[in-house]
Design a protein around this nucleic acid. Structure first.
Lengths: 347, 347
DNA sequence: TTGATTTATTGGAACGTTCCATTTATAGCG
DNA sequence: CGCTATAAATGGAACGTTCCAATAAATCAA
């Protein structure tokens, strides 16, 4: 069964008693070949244990069927969900997505992108690593391979972006807290080298402004974007002279950290301190107390990104519109009313 | 800067005034070329916006630098951690891992494997989807591409496996529960089409046997391997005439589900019902109550798998030893003593 | 029958690399 | 100087496909 050297189209041709061209046609499912011949060829393919060499094929065809997904943190369930959404639509389109992880490391990202390009991908969907330099994608752009950014954008680049409406999400969440009677609010986590950070913080500030929370009653604590960062933020905040009674967190991971730190101090999220997260990962619903969070329809954004990519490939363009996904606030237990206030209306 | 058609080695040669062979040598970092020439060539490479065509190169070289990681469920943080461990060692070896998700779907797995093979991967690390047919990898084996299984094995295959010591882990966990005074024990979640299931269940049963828990006091509830499955298991168990007071769960996800269901009934894990998980995902430590679990050193297993793979590639063999990773029980809050028993010693 | 048309099949050049066997230039030695 | 040894650069064949143009075989119209 298993011949030593790997079988090629010529081996199949010999085995089936036809020409290599015929085999190639069969491989591509051309309707030009007589059904009986096709069957004969297919049998030969099976017999010699052939595996198609896409590299060789691409040498002639120029258009490959693989696209690269470059993700900055696979261990964040958020990005895994995003990947899953994309896969769904790519699979249907007969495109194979290869995922690569950059672990939030620009150098690693550079390597990964290089490798993907060398492999001849038809397109790239990227959630850029923090600290990506503005020129990191210029090379790829000039070559003409379509790129779309997912979830994160770079300061000023012409590359299309698929992202949730961060500003609006933050506004919704902040309004919710204020309506619950909170008057001293904090924004926890994230750092200003991320564009998303400015968008979310911007929404927070705007809502404060609109609903009359003076700057002196707002506390902004930058920090890491994981659980640890959230814990640190809470400690910092509670050490303040007039500590806040509620916080909007940069993302759910930070929120989980905050809740953890509260519990360590014998306080409970919701009753003693209101916490709102961002992203609404699956875990949020199952936490205790369940986390109020801004739902961004992660898988949906993934699908959208994939669609945009397919369209770009098809129309051989490198430009596309940005897409800002709708968001909604999912109110759960972690965002109770201010215990000292008598307002607390329903959502 | 950006020429229309994509630049090849010949364009560089023309630009730099050398032959294509020289360019090729430079590309491979050969020491045979004069440093000044190399510099000249490198400049030309930059100028024409060249991207290396690995497909064409592999046509001659036969050995590629990419390996495929095929993972059955990316959204399970457990597998993401595994992937991260692998990436660490591959990166150091100059190998690029491409990750593909099968979403626990054998058909999808088939497609993904085919694609990876066509791409000419040097090796494959696979955590097979549930329901994988025994013959699914025969094709790849006969071609001679090295495969290693991670975390899961197939009923009888000669493919090397990297897996934690599931049996021992289950024994440790079960002994722990019995020492805490529990006498009616349950095993929750998983199903018998998974080899892991039999290993873990086997450890559970052995420990029960050894420490004198009669079969009549053991309850085995199969179920899905996620949160939902865990919730269902608990309901089933509590409906029994003589419900168990403690459970070893197939994995942490099931355990989280059980804890959730307990909370819904106003019970607390640890105080009212002991719960032990398996895998010790990062989340376990941060849950409330913190989950007692069998730690399997996920990232370590990933690294090990990657090392085995590299060795196989290097020695062009398709065989390697299995590797059973050490496990340890991490005792946290979710596994309290039986409230009706007076035993409850320390770990 | 002949020529035109359709249906199946085929040879060969091209794709962008690598690598062997050569060639050319440079240096070393007596 | 001539000769060999070493260093640097090069041409050409090969890798496994695709696809165009060409051929061969079968069918049809007149």
């Amino acid at each position: 069964m298993a011949s030593r050297a790997k079988a090629t189209i010529l081996d199949i041709a010999r085995e089936a008693g036809v020409s290599k061209s015929t085999v190639s046609l069969v491989l591509q499912g051309s309707g030009l070949i007589r059904p009986e011949t096709a069957t004969k060829v297919r049998k030969a393919i099976e017999d010699v244990g052939y595996v198609y060499n896409r590299g060789a094929a691409n040498l002639r065809k120029a258009h490959s069927n693989v696209i690269g997904m470059v993700i900055n943190d696979l261990t964040n369930p958020f990005f895994a969900e995003l990947a899953v959404g994309m896969e769904r639509v790519f699979q249907a389109a007969g495109v194979v997505p290869f995922i690569a992880n950059t672990a939030e490391n620009p150098v690693r990202q550079e390597e990964v992108l290089k490798s993907l390009m060398e492999q001849g991908v038809a397109g790239l969907i990227v959630s850029p690593a923090r600290g990506t330099t503005p020129g990191a994608f210029r090379r790829i752009e000039t070559v003409g391979v379509p790129i779309v950014f997912a979830m994160r954008r770079l300061p000023d680049s012409r590359i299309p972006v698929i992202t949730p409406d961060n500003h609006r999400g933050a506004v919704l969440a902040t309004e919710h807290l204020i309506r619950k009677g909170h008057r001293r609010l904090a924004f926890f986590g994230g750092s200003s080298d991320l564009v998303v950070y400015h968008e979310r913080l911007g929404g927070f500030l705007e809502a404060c402004e609109t609903l009359g929370i003076p700057a002196s009653d707002r506390l902004i604590v930058e920090g890491e974007t994981g659980r640890k960062g959230g814990m640190a933020c809470l400690e910092t905040a509670l050490a303040a002279a007039e500590p806040p009674t509620a916080a909007l967190c940069f993302n759910d991971a930070v929120a989980f950290g905050v809740m953890l730190a509260l519990r360590k101090r014998g306080l409970e999220a919701g009753a003693d301190f209101a916490v709102v997260g961002f992203d609404d990962v699956a875990e949020a619903e199952h936490y205790s107390p369940a986390l109020t969070s801004v739902a961004v329809d992660t898988a949906g954004l993934g699908e959208r990104a994939a669609h945009v990519m397919l369209k770009m490939i098809q129309s051989r363009t490198t430009r596309a519109e940005d897409h800002i996904g709708a968001v909604s606030l999912v109110v759960r237990e972690s965002s109770g009313p201010d215990r000292n206030s008598q307002v607390g209306d329903a959502a």
